[in-house]
């Protein structure tokens, strides 16, 4: 059941000047939220932002009825979301999209590029509950793009790459020894980040014959399958990222 509901801004956690976590609270109970789900957030108070913005659900707390979103400021919509006050009303359509498939023997490798780590906290929580060991590989252009490793470190090992070498291994995530080395202990890869990164990882997963799911990001007008704007080419034709995804097994994608 998809809902349209008002939330109140409960608080912010700023990670640096352009990355933050916003926590929104509902007065009513939340429905079940699954790893991979997203919400369409109506950005209040800015007439230049006409459409809602889709964000992965970063965290949820069913006791306090809160949803959290990891936001990187890239335009007017995200900038406005960063300037709200505690108690401001924000309207959400949620929960949207499908979920990650955690039916695996594990261990798993979770690869996030920049703000692409957003859907992986809920995934980590579910995997931990199932007793599946996980390793996070987090990549960024520079150390300023790598956040929340302390949080993710509670669920599994953390590996880091930066293109400028300012943190972790220098290079892209695909250059990291965990991927380059002959032995590859992982049974499944989950990835989210820029398309070129996910495509490179999908290629590696195919070579290693490892299951791989990618959470895609696309421009959406609605988020619930009405506009047909957010399509991705799949082996069965154009499909909507919002309703058939955002999580796709890479075997379904025409990459």
């Amino acid at each position: 059941m998809k809902l349209v509901r008002d939330f109140k801004v409960a608080g912010y956690k700023w990670l640096n000047e352009s990355n933050f976590i916003i926590e929104l609270q509902s007065a009513e109970d939340l429905p079940p939220i699954h790893p991979g789900n997203f919400a369409e957030i109506q950005v209040p108070g800015n007439p230049n932002v006409f459409l809602r913005r889709p964000f992965s659900i970063y965290d949820c707390d069913l006791t306090y009825n809160t949803l959290s979103f990891y936001v990187k400021i890239i335009g007017e919509g995200t900038a406005t979301l960063g300037k709200l006050k505690q108690g401001d009303t924000v309207n959400l359509i949620f929960p949207l999209g499908n979920k990650f498939d955690t039916e695996t023997e594990g261990p798993v490798l979770i690869i996030g590029g920049g703000s692409g780590i957003a859907p992986f906290l809920l995934l980590g929580k579910e995997l931990k509950e199932k007793g599946i060991p996980m390793t996070f590989l987090v990549g960024g252009r520079t150390s300023g793009d790598v956040h929340l490793t302390d949080v993710f470190g509670q669920y599994g090992d953390i590996l880091i790459t930066t293109e400028d070498g300012s943190q972790g291994t220098k290079g892209m995530v695909t250059h990291h020894p965990v991927i380059q080395e002959e032995s590859f202990p992982f049974k499944k890869i989950f990835t989210c980040g820029p398309d070129p990164m996910m495509k490179a990882i999908a290629e590696i997963a195919k070579q290693k014959s490892v299951e791989c799911e990618a959470s895609l990001e696309n421009t959406m007008a609605c988020g619930f399958g009405a506009c047909l704007c957010c399509v991705v080419e799949t082996t069965t034709g154009n499909r909507c990222v919002c309703t058939d995804g955002p999580v796709f097994n890479i075997k379904e994608l025409a990459w």
Binding site: P47, N48, V49, N218, A221, L228, C229, C230, N238
Partner: peptide, 30 residues
Amino acid sequence: KGLTLHNREGNAYPRMAETASGMLNSVGLQ
């Protein structure tokens, strides 16, 4: 949603651009 005689995959992505108080689409009758 618009119907055609045969299956149509529609246009390539990107199909949408937000504009001031509106949006452009080029879905292409998928």
